[in-house]
Design a protein around this nucleic acid. Sequence first.
DNA 1: CAGCATCCCGGCCGATACTG
DNA 2: CAGTATCGGCCGGGATGCTG
Lengths: 124, 124
Amino acid sequence: MDPDLPFDVFARSCPSRGTLEHVTGRWGALTVVALYECTLRFNELRRRVDGVSEKMLSQTLHALERDGLVHREAQPTNPPRVDYALTPLGQDVADRLMGLIGLLEERMPEILAAQEKYDAERGA
Amino acid sequence: MDPDLPFDVFARSCPSRGTLEHVTGRWGALTVVALYECTLRFNELRRRVDGVSEKMLSQTLHALERDGLVHREAQPTNPPRVDYALTPLGQDVADRLMGLIGLLEERMPEILAAQEKYDAERGA
DNA sequence: CAGCATCCCGGCCGATACTG
DNA sequence: CAGTATCGGCCGGGATGCTG
């Protein structure tokens, strides 16, 4: 990308690779985008991100929190209540991810047509 | 995202999930972005995407080609020459991905600081 | 409710060898 | 050069059970 930047995602050892994988991983992108609109609690998030297991959501949130994209706030109440929200940096990342996901959703007809054509020509 | 769209990435069964994973997968994002600037041959791509194995690059390219994001053009010469380029849809996806990656690269200092703080407080 | 610990299976992915 | 074929390790991630 910008050759003057000290971080180059194309380099195997660049730490940006790790964060990119957290953000674009199987559950990372959906989790970040789910938090775009509003703060959510653990199980609210779990319901919103259809299909994620408790374990994976927990892992994903820890990684995103460590990267400074998600803020975790535990209320010392009973029953416990924990809110997850995006940090300002997380909001910026979410903007980009929403652009990407929105594009894919919009152009799914085109993608599905390409897949059918590909399968018809090759796979059978 | 847009509730009027027939495709919702949050739904487990939505086909957009698959394409999102191809595009954001471990090698998908880097492959698409590597092709942003220019057409590349297989081994050029392999060198650009530092760390990818032959097998993974091949699989990634097939998935992206099937989704209609990458165009593959084989020249019947000897030695063989195969060029990979983005389709118009692939270009649009690459734009979004470059925005995301550029943002992460720019703000890596912030991310690294968050990681250190997290590790200092918890892990250690 | 929020979550960690444990078990365990499938498949991701790297390494190697081979083909046109 | 541009791949495919095959093997095998390891870990992603689902299921279950338990804690505060």
